[in-house]
């Protein structure tokens, strides 16, 4: 049986694996998801592909306690709006920390996780989530 949704997911792989968006050279605005035209500059806009660095801070968040069936195993989990350092905002799950540790303004970085799967027989969708920045031994922190 043909799998529903495979083509739609395949088209988004580049953007959801690596937070690939775009940047308008005219108004210097960064967009995610990538836009077909710059909503500010319209036909004067010049868009180029841009891979976000994946670093940002939590703009706001919610703790999910009533989840859809495919997310039940993760309850309670945090869904946040993340403001990336380049300025774009996007929605993503916060992982690798307890919900009570999450706060507005917290620094996060993108990580690679399983987003959902289409049952036991279907495809698995991977993509970005965010986690608190991890301490690195020997890193020259400012």
């Amino acid at each position: 049986m043909a799998e529903h949704g495979v083509a739609q997911i395949w088209r988004k792989i580049k953007s959801i694996y690596n937070i690939q968006g775009n940047h308008c050279k005219t108004c210097d605005t960064y967009y995610f998801p990538p836009r077909p035209v710059c909503p500010e500059c319209r036909r004067k806009g010049v868009l180029e592909d841009y891979r976000f660095k994946g670093l940002g801070k939590i703009h706001t968040f919610a703790v999910v306690r009533q989840a859809p069936d495919t997310f039940k195993r993760q309850v309670p989990y945090v869904v946040a709006q993340i403001e990336l350092d380049e300025g774009a905002r996007l929605t993503g799950q916060i992982v690798n920390c307890d919900p009570e540790e999450v706060e507005i303004g917290m620094r996060v970085r993108a990580c690679f996780r399983k987003i959902t799967e289409f049952g036991d027989k279907g495809i698995i969708v991977y993509g970005y989530k965010f986690e608190p920045v991890l301490k690195v031994t020997g890193h020259p922190y400012p």
Binding site: Q93, F112, R113, K114, I124
Partner: peptide, 16 residues
């Protein structure tokens, strides 16, 4: 592993 981690996600993190 967390409920959203598997060999693909672990491999990607290590590879990055």
């Amino acid at each position: 592993p967390g409920p959203d981690e598997d060999v693909a996600t672990i491999s990607v993190e290590a590879a990055r």
